[in-house]
């Protein structure tokens, strides 16, 4: 097994060019499980952890730029993130437990592309943009556009995630919602995970809503049909019920060792309802 440790972005890109098929290592919280299971025998591993450029959080005028190696613990502690992106903070606080949050990185989480990733619904409703670097140059990919399937992304060979940019939600939303329904209260993988932002205009009419669900389809899903339907409507038992029906058509959960499709359908709808009713738990 070869273990390569570039110190800069340029070195990292060159390393991948020289060793196609190499695997990228960031915080290791998922990666090392594979190592322990013997799945990495004979593979070349490129350790990105020494790339200092990817470790910062920068506040801009319209949003924040988070280096891909920023950990889930760092995100939770950062005052600007706490103020502007509480749904991301809530999600990070529920990834494994503290020892995992201290190591796992936002970029690693995205590259890993687990359908159950806890940060994804939050990043989806904040409409984050993923910045990448590759020998062919840099590009910016809308968050939802990066995923190709379970554990699969549209990143090209040798293309690496540099940063995640999240625009400030303006005007500030009337309500923000996050909930993870996991296998237990903590140190859990999600069975269904949801985030929502709601803007109400005067008269309790929905100006805009964004709702995203994880663990219920091969990739993270925004509930576009429900969002479109709700725009301009008042929230009543009837409109909420209709939105719940629309969500059902937008997800494709499966039975697996953690849960069942039937349960995930029901809970996804209930989560939307809880979000729209703005009901404190």
């Amino acid at each position: 097994m070869e273990f390569l440790r570039p110190r800069s972005v340029r070195e990292a890109l060159e390393t991948f060019q020289k060793t196609p098929g190499a695997l990228a290592l960031a915080g290791g919280t998922d990666f090392m499980v594979g190592w322990n299971m013997g799945l990495l025998n004979g593979k070349t591993v490129v350790d990105l952890s020494r790339i200092a450029e990817w470790k910062g959080i920068e506040a801009g005028k319209t949003g924040v730029r988070i280096g891909s190696l920023v950990t889930h613990a760092e995100l939770q502690r950062h005052p600007l993130i706490r103020r502007e992106f509480p749904l991301l903070v809530e999600a990070c606080a529920l990834i494994g437990a503290i020892a995992i949050q201290n190591r796992g990185t936002i970029g690693g989480n995205i590259a890993n592309a687990s359908p159950a990733a806890d940060t994804f619904p939050s990043l989806a409703v904040y409409e984050a943009v993923v910045h990448t670097a590759s020998p062919q140059g840099r590009r910016a990919i809308p968050f939802l556009g990066i995923f190709a399937g379970p554990k699969k992304t549209h990143l090209r060979p040798g293309e690496l995630i540099e940063a995640i940019e999240i625009p400030y939600a303006r005007p500030r939303p009337s309500a923000a919602y996050f909930r993870k329904v996991g296998t237990r209260a903590a140190q859990a993988l999600s069975k269904t995970v949801a985030a929502g932002l709601l803007w109400l205009s005067r008269g309790k009419t929905v100006a805009e809503s964004r709702f995203a669900l994880g663990s219920v389809a091969p990739t993270i899903r925004r509930a576009r049909k429900a969002e479109d339907y709700l725009r301009g409507r008042k929230l009543t038992a009837e409109t909420v019920g209709r939105a719940m029906d629309l969500v059902e058509a937008e997800i494709a959960p499966i039975d697996d060792v953690r849960s069942t499709a039937a349960y995930r359908f029901a809970v996804s709808k209930n989560l939307l309802k809880e979000f729209l009713e703005c009901r404190p738990r």
Binding site: F3, R5, L25, G28, T29, M32, V33, W35, N36, D47, S49, A73, I98, A99, I100, N102, R103
Partner: peptide, 16 residues
């Protein structure tokens, strides 16, 4: 502890 923070030592290559 790694620099004072709790971590899972089974998930960390010694290089880190």
């Amino acid at each position: 502890f790694l620099d004072g923070e709790p971590v899972n030592s089974c998930l960390i290559p010694v290089a880190h």
